[in-house]
Design a protein around this nucleic acid. Structure first.
Lengths: 238, 238
DNA sequence: CGACCGGTTGAACTGCATCAAGCTGAGTGG
DNA sequence: CCACTCAGCTTGATGCAGTTCAACCGGTCG
């Protein structure tokens, strides 16, 4: 746990590295509500925890993570967002998380007063928040009750469309000839902070999966799943 | 980790014990939208994870926890709700959690079709979900990054109005003559499953706090905080 | 009174963190 | 084109916080 720069005010905090999409998008887009689309490069901070919450954001393209820091520098990535997701909503006056891009991203910014007015916007919001709640619930199980191997397996499975989530069918008993190519776009540090582990543990688990032939590591952030179903069985959910 | 009865269908699962409110209520009530108010006794299941999501619920009185089970019986309590909170909203066709009362409770049930129609309801919902999101973010930090002592300290501080949460002022350097009486309404098992610990660890930490004079344990679920500020400093947040 | 349930306490174990090297590949400059 | 550097990653050795297993305690209920 380094981040010794962390126990200070929002703007003084330094950025971190990483970057990759995580799950399938919610249908609706908020383009109809106007708002500027801002372009951010990778590892750019959209806003800081503790900053006044001024706008609502919709991730249009790329990927963004939300994280919180403890005063001693420990970090927890609480969400990894994908296009269609909404963030920046706060029930207080301040943002409760820092939002930082993982990859170059496009973010639509919508004035909070608009939200009060538009009925349609409220409807989309409810839908989106409900979905994020489900994801957070599942993540709480991961953080509170899963082993390191189960966390990493769950993380990887979540990157496979229609697998790993609540609606996952579970492993296909017979043939495990399913394979899948992943681009993580996150550093080991970001993955570790998302999974509540250390960088070393993540690395060790990945190496172990490799050794067992479940995955192939082409580059640190480019992983091929040799046996999707075997991996699925390692998530603790089947 | 017992719960061996868990790896089965929703209705077959057995109930668990416990019960206590956790934080201050959101202003709005949904009484204006009608809906029946159901009375549940303590440790009653309102709905099961996996059941078709038919209605929206508002906790009127009492306290309710939401939890998820892994097939091998490990449990994670993902939320502890207090009056004013809304639950049962699902973005799929099924509930993603089991909802169980901690104490005798009153729960208002609202038809999901109402939600589609009412603009005002949407507004209240957005507000309520945003608040729950913030709580879930904070809980992710607890589960992913805090030590056992920090978890228990955070848990207890959350039960003190205006303390423990994001808006907590932090410990008052000087006089720590603040003291406070708590009624937990949760068993050690429920607390452990909420904090991602074992029952033994919770017990040991509580005993330790007692030994150090930070708290006084009148009954297992009736705890007096002798030094609120000392406890506050043990949450890892100051 | 005995059984049972929730809680506490102790002893031993272990999974993950911590500490410490070494490795790899991209960028830089001579 | 090669030496150097530096960041991100991997690997090994060791330590410890929290789990596991087990015994016991106190209150309650039949």
């Amino acid at each position: 746990m380094a981040y010794l720069d962390a126990a200070v005010t929002a703007q003084e905090r330094s950025a971190r590295r990483g970057g990759a999409p995580v799950r399938a998008a919610v249908e609706a887009s908020l383009s109809e509500f106007g708002g500027k689309v801002a372009h951010h490069e990778a590892h750019a901070v959209v806003y800081y925890e503790g900053d006044p919450a001024r706008r609502l954001y919709e991730l249009v393209k790329g990927s963004v993570m939300l994280y919180k820091l403890l005063p001693d520098g420990r970090r927890q990535v609480v969400e990894v967002l994908r296009p269609g997701d909404i963030f920046g909503l706060s029930d207080g006056a301040e943002n409760d998380c820092t939002a930082e891009t993982l990859t170059a991203s496009e973010v639509r910014e919508i004035d909070l007063r608009q939200v009060e007015r538009s009925e349609e916007l409220q409807r989309v919001l409810t839908k989106c928040l409900t979905n994020q709640m489900r994801v957070l619930h599942e993540h709480a199980v991961l953080l509170g009750r899963k082993s390191a191997v189960e966390r990493v397996a769950s993380f990887l499975m979540h990157l496979v469309p229609d697998r790993g989530g609540a609606g996952c069918i579970g492993p296909d008993e017979d043939a495990d000839e399913d394979s899948y190519d992943l681009q993580l776009h996150m550093t080991r540090q970001e993955i570790a902070d998302y999974l509540g582990l250390t960088i070393e543990t993540v690395s060790r688990v990945v190496s172990d999966l490799k050794r067992r032939g479940v995955i192939r590591v082409d580059k640190a952030d480019k992983i091929h799943l040799n046996k999707v179903c075997t991996l699925c069985q390692m998530t603790g959910m089947h």
